[in-house]
């Protein structure tokens, strides 16, 4: 079933929407969750909570264009919340590693920052990603959005782990340089 048809089921409040969504995207969503929480049971809970959130948010939302990205964004947020709630000690190695990497290239805009500033930062990131090659973009997003491990990315993109690491390192540096140029400041860790 195509995404539009599933969205229509959601809009019609037809509960089969959830079954259709699970059939089409369940495994991928659970995979995202699993990458973060590192626990099959918690990943399953995240997946199920994703359907609930989707049910409650469609309508008013109608994510016809990018339904999977919409669902995936819910899942990753739920998974990160799950990790956060479990306490820092339980954070998986991947999340800890990614956290450090993010601190290299995304500035700390502060607790008191306005949403407008956050949106500006997102726009800068999207602008940067729009300007790089599809391969680089894929590497970056697989790593930081999907939380994929380096070796998984290397296997999927048929390149070496070293190549993936190098690509990510360069991209973080490029992004940081661009953001510094735009007036963002980084603390010493970055």
């Amino acid at each position: 079933m195509d995404d539009n048809a599933i969205i229509e089921l959601f809009l019609a409040r037809d509960e089969s929407a959830i079954a259709m969504t699970a059939e089409k995207y369940g495994r991928s969503l659970r995979s995202i969750a699993r990458s973060v929480v590192r626990d099959e049971r918690e990943a399953e809970e995240c997946e199920n909570d994703t359907y609930l959130k989707a049910w409650n948010s469609i309508p008013p939302n109608e994510p016809r264009e990018h339904f999977f990205a919409y669902l995936g964004a819910i899942t990753r947020r739920l998974a990160l919340n799950c990790v956060r709630d479990s306490g820092r000690l339980r954070r998986g190695a991947t999340v800890v590693e990614l956290t450090k990497e993010m601190e290299e290239c995304i500035p700390d805009i502060g607790e008191a920052s306005e949403r407008a500033e956050l949106n500006e930062l997102k726009a800068e990131l999207n602008g940067y990603l729009a300007g790089v090659s599809e391969r680089k973009r894929s590497v970056f997003i697989r790593r930081y959005w999907y939380f994929e491990e380096i070796r998984t990315i290397a296997r999927e993109l048929k390149c070496s782990e070293s190549s993936v690491k190098t690509t990510l390192l360069r991209m973080r540096r490029e992004l940081k340089a661009i953001l510094i140029e735009k007036g963002y400041s980084f603390d010493e860790r970055g």
């Binding site: 993010m102 990131l125 997003i141 959005w145």
Partner: peptide
């Protein structure tokens, strides 16, 4: 921030 990546890129 990363969560705000353009869904088409995702």
């Amino acid at each position: 921030v990363i969560g705000g990546v353009d869904p088409s890129f995702v």
